[in-house]
Amino acid sequence: MNRTRLKATERKFLILKSARRIFSRFGYDAARTQDIAKESGISEAMMYRHFPSKQALYRAVLRQTIREQDESYAVLGPHELSGQGLVNSLRAYFTLVNSAGDDHLKEGFRLLLASLAGDGSFATLVYRRSRRIMGRRIRAALETARIDGDIVGVAITERNTTMFIEHVGTMMNAIQSLRTDAFPYDGDPSEVVRDAVWFCCRGIGFSDEALEAYYSR
C-alpha cells in the first residue's frame, strides 16, 4: 500500500514538472494537456486521475511556484534595513536571475511572463503577494537610506521601486534563454550584475559614493 502511494506521488511530481515546463513555454491557453502527458510518460487519461482538468493542473503549478517565491523572498529580501541592505539584496537578486543554471527557477520567471501575455491573473497575484510580504521592509530600508544621505533627489515610492527592479530582473532572466552569440549584454556575468545594480540604484537616487562603498563590501 505504501509503495503504491509512493509511486502515485512520484507520478504526480513528474506531471507537475512537465506541466510547469509546458505552461512556462507556451502559456496557459496554448499549452496542450496531451503534450504534458506525453512529456510525463503517461496517457492523458492517467494524468486526469491526478488532476481533473487543465485548470486544476495549472493552479497546482502556480501554487508550487508561489511557495518557491516565498522562499526566495526570505533569502533575497533586505535583511538589513538600510542602504547597504538594499544594495546587498539587489546584488543577490541580479546574480540569481543572471545565472546560467537552475532551469526550474527560470521556469518560474517565464510563468510570470506568460501570465502577463495572457489574462495576467497569476502576475497580479505575484505582485500583490510581493508587496504584502516585502513592501514594509523595502519602505523601511529606503527611508533609512534617505535619512543616512545615501539616497538623494526626488523620492520614488516603495511600490514603484520594487516593480521597476522586478521588471529588469524578469527580462534579464528571460534573455538567458537566448543563444550565446545573441546575448545582448556587454561584459562577463559579474560585470552585468554590477551594471544592473548600479542602473537600478542610480534610478532610486543612490549617490555614486554610497554605491561604490556598499557594493565593494
Rank of each mutant, 00 (worst) to 15 (best):
Y185N: 01
S89Y: 08
Y28I: 05
F51V: 07
N173Q: 01
I66F: 10
H50R: 03
R146L: 13
G85I: 08
D70H: 15
I147Q: 15
F109T: 02
A31W: 08
R131F: 12
F164R: 12
E107D: 08
E191G: 02
K12R: 14
E212S: 01
E10W: 06
A92S: 14
R25C: 14
V154N: 07
I42D: 08
A213P: 05
A141F: 09
V154F: 07
F13V: 00
R63W: 08
T95D: 08
Q55G: 14
F164I: 14
R67T: 12
T95S: 13
R32Y: 05
A123M: 07
I36G: 05
P78W: 08
G169H: 01
E209K: 07
A141T: 07
E80L: 06
K7R: 11
E209C: 04
T124C: 10
L16W: 03
D195H: 12
L14M: 03
W198N: 11
D70L: 15
R20G: 13
N88P: 10
G108S: 05
R128S: 09
H50A: 11
I15S: 06
Y48H: 04
R129L: 14
R137E: 15
T9N: 10
L6D: 03
L105C: 15
M134E: 15
F183E: 06
H167Y: 07
Y215I: 04
H104D: 13
G108L: 03
Y185S: 01
D195I: 03
L111D: 07
S18A: 15
D150N: 06
M47H: 02
L116T: 10
